Computed example of a mutant assay.
Amino acid sequence: MEIDYSKHKHVVVIYPHPDDESFGTAGTVVKFREAGVPVTYLCGTLGEMGRNMGSPFFANRETLPEIRKQELINACKEIDMDLQMLSYRDKTMEFEDEQVVADDLRKRIEELDASLVITFYPPYAVHPDHNAMGRAAFRAIRDMDPDKRPEVWANAISNDHQEILGSPDIVIDTKDVFQKKLNALKAHKSQIDGMLQKVRQGNEELSEFDLALRYFQYETYHTVTFD
């Protein structure tokens, strides 16, 4: 599927955690930015309850929130994406009032005049925060005037999602912009270092670039409509 990135006015990315944007959509963001399209990330939490503290450890439970906040800021700079932090609490998105979250997201989407929203596809996004944020984003768009709704691309990542949803509608090869995606991933040092060390075992002959490319080259989305 050939994608005309330049047709969009503004892309809004909605995920709950710092690093969701880098793993799932950084290459896509870079392609939009190279086409001159503004992109804004609405990030739900600071990921302050995450278990990864760096490898070797350089964070603890008290320092992790500020560290992950700065990592998020740095990652967004790497891919030239604007950032709005929504200040919800990590690992509690499923307990937030979904309509309240949706109303806030809808207001921001409308203020930014988004023509495309990228978010998680509930309930196929594994983590409770992922699914809760996706549900709120879907509700926000469903609540909009049908004539003003943006296009929606959604990440489905559960093991069974293709059996239920079918193959992704959009597959983006990020190889040509992968260095920028890798820079964004590496900005999340507390999260990525341990992962790269783990996958390097048995792949010692690969460069850091080629190792990361093996796992994160393609970004896939299902298109969603609200009739």
Rank of each mutant, 00 (worst) to 15 (best):
H127T: 14
H127V: 13
D129A: 06
D129S: 09
D129G: 07
D129Y: 02
H130P: 12
H130D: 09
H130M: 11
H130Q: 12
N131K: 08
A132R: 05
A132D: 09
M133L: 13
G134E: 08
R135I: 03
R135S: 13
A137R: 08
A137D: 06
A137H: 03
A137Y: 04
A137G: 07
F138P: 01
A140L: 05
I141Y: 01
I141R: 03
I141V: 14
R142I: 10
R142L: 13
D145F: 02
D145H: 05
D145E: 11
D145A: 03
D147M: 11
D147E: 15
D147T: 13
K148E: 13
K148P: 00
R149F: 02
R149M: 08
P150R: 03
E151Y: 00
E151W: 00
V152W: 01
W153H: 05
A154H: 03
A154N: 08
A154I: 04
A156I: 04
A156E: 06
I157C: 06
S158W: 04
S158G: 08
S158L: 07
N159V: 14
N159T: 12
N159E: 09
D160T: 13
H161N: 13
H161T: 15
Q162G: 00
E163H: 10
I164R: 12
I164C: 01
G166C: 11
G166A: 07
G166W: 07
S167T: 12
S167E: 15
S167P: 11
S167G: 02
D169L: 02
I170C: 02
I170K: 07
V171G: 02
V171C: 12
V171T: 15
V171F: 00
I172V: 15
I172Q: 08
I172L: 05
D173V: 04
K175A: 14
D176Q: 14
V177G: 03
F178Y: 07
F178M: 06
Q179G: 01
Q179D: 14
Q179W: 06
K180L: 13
L182A: 09
N183D: 15
N183F: 00
A184T: 12
A184L: 07
L185A: 12
L185E: 07
K186F: 00
K186D: 09
A187T: 08
H188N: 10
H188F: 05
H188C: 03
K189D: 12
S190G: 01
S190A: 02
S190W: 02
Q191E: 15
